[in-house]
Design a protein around this nucleic acid. Structure first.
Length: 441
RNA sequence: CGGGGCGUAGCGCAGUCUGGUAGCGCACCUGCUUUGGGAGCAGGGGGUCGCAAGUUCGAAUCUUGCCGCCCCGACCA
């Protein structure tokens, strides 16, 4: 992509409403535009990151056996009356009336709707386990939206819903999502720690929040250091096998948010193993048994021919929130530092002197060769001063900058700068292409 | 929803107290010079001063009402 043809509205100054670093950087890097309190447009750079995160979430959901669907944003109030939540949900639910004065709502979540789908079609335990998910915009009319997309009113969320014959089956479904989450956050370049969470009316131990550590996190968390160094289950994980050993390993070391914190237990950890930090919740999984299937009549025939109410769980990942969470966890004074799997472009190609024949030719050649090799390049071909170009590249945080100017070219050299550690290497243009292609293949 | 604050050009702000017909920096456009870490000079474009009513010869400025946005708290993916 040529910068001269792209839409990247960089702000040099920080809009005053932005309080936390991710919000500031997202506005400055031209990723989002606020349209109303807690409601944002996603501009090209932001949209690319959002799409990348969605892709990784999808791949890991699919790998774990969940099946993608797409449910609407607007729902009928009737469904929610069945579960009793239409009255319970309160002012956070955005209620709408259509032209026929039918009561509608902008969905804050989809348990009722997915249960309606399930009960309409599934009759037998033989069709279980079933896990349906979608990635869709949700709306919760927060009293006070803040921190940009970290806590907006409209947000993109992956929510999965599992259906099993009994609690034992539900536990296996829960474990599959647990492992999928470990893998998802790892691929996003994040250290996510599963922490025991409030489990609602059902009780038990099947509710975890996945928390990433970031200085600007919203809540205080306490954890064993061991969880930070634990190996994440690999791509070859067999999701049809019993995953409880993995889940057990990840839930044994101490980890709790402030609400569930047990200071005494935490103190028993060796001093060097205690981590007390700020955290951001990026995922939440829980089992809720028959809370919706019972009132809504989601039943299947068991092996004995008797009808049984299915056991359900739901599993959320805040996709749009993750964009901000990643930035909170990965930035410096100059700007964003994208993890390689979700970066909007792989390489920023900087032409230091557009209009100079040699420099233009060298850049065009590099751009074409990298594109041909499948490396995604944002080519800064606009006329601006070197300093401004460097500042922009650092701000938008692409992992590698390929810097090309007349001085270097005289020595047949271009420069590759690593955004994360600031290291630089001077290479011939050929060697630079080879190096970047090897890096991004 | 309680408490606090802010709406003046795309962004950051001054002007409001004490009414006189709108300004600064950045960004944008033109030209010249400059050119490896946010250049300089000169010229230029852009604003129903959040909206509405009122007071006044005259309102960004005073009065009233409304709307929007932000921060702290309670609440939450």
């Amino acid at each position: 992509m040529r910068l001269s043809r792209y839409f990247l509205p960089i702000l040099r100054e920080t809009p005053k409403e932005a309080e936390i670093v991710s919000h500031r950087l997202m506005l400055r890097a031209g990723m989002i535009r606020q349209q109303s309190a807690g409601i944002y447009s996603w501009l090209p750079l932001g949209q690319r990151v959002l799409a990348s995160i969605g892709r990784i979430v999808r791949e890991e959901q699919d790998r774990a056996g969940a099946i993608e669907i797409l449910m609407p944003t607007i729902q009928s109030a009737e469904l929610w009356r069945e579960s009793g939540r239409y009255e319970d949900y309160g002012l956070e639910m955005l209620r709408i009336e259509d032209r026929h004065e039918r009561e509608m709502l902008y969905g804050p979540t989809n348990e009722e709707m997915v249960t309606e789908i399930f009960r309409s079609y599934v009759r037998s335990y033989r069709e279980l386990p079933l896990n349906l998910y979608h990635i869709q915009w949700k709306f919760r009319d927060e009293v006070r939206p803040r921190f940009g997309v970290m806590r907006g009113r409209e947000f993109l969320m992956k929510d999965a819903y599992s259906f099993d014959l009994d609690q034992e089956g539900a536990r296996a479904s829960y474990n599959r999502m647990f492992v999928a989450y470990l893998r998802t956050f790892d691929r996003l370049g994040l250290k996510a720690i599963p922490m025991r969470a409030e489990s609602g009316p059902i009780g038990g131990d099947m509710s975890h929040e996945f928390i990433i550590l970031a200085d600007t996190g919203e809540s205080q968390v306490f954890s064993s250091r061991r969880l930070l160094d634990m190996a994440v289950p690999g791509e070859d994980t067999d999701f049809s096998a019993d995953l409880s050993p993995i889940v057990d390993a990840w839930t044994t070391p101490y980890a709790a948010t402030e609400e569930k914190h047990d200071p005494a237990a935490f103190e028993r950890l060796p001093e060097s193993e205690r981590v007390s930090a700020r955290g951001i919740e990026v995922g939440h999984i829980f089992y809720f048994g028959t809370k919706y299937s019972e009132p809504m009549g989601a039943k299947v025939a068991g092996p004995d021919g008797q009808m049984r109410t299915v056991h359900m769980g739901s599993y959320g990942i805040g996709v749009s929130r993750l964009v901000a969470a990643v930035i909170e966890a990965s930035h410096d004074d100059a700007g964003i530092i994208w993890p390689r799997n979700i970066t909007p472009f792989h390489v920023g190609l900087v032409n230091l002197k557009p209009g100079d024949k040699n420099t233009d030719l060298a850049c065009e050649t590099l751009y074409a060769r990298l594109a041909k090799a499948g490396v995604e390049v944002l080519y800064d071909d606009v006329e601006a001063r070197a300093g401004a170009k460097f500042a922009t590249m650092d701000l938008i945080g692409l992992p590698h900058q390929l810097i090309v100017g007349p001085k270097g070219l005289e020595r047949d050299e271009v420069e590759i700068k690593n955004r994360r550690d600031g290291s630089r290497q001077n290479l011939s243009p050929d060697a630079a292409v080879n190096w970047l292609v090897a890096e991004w293949r």
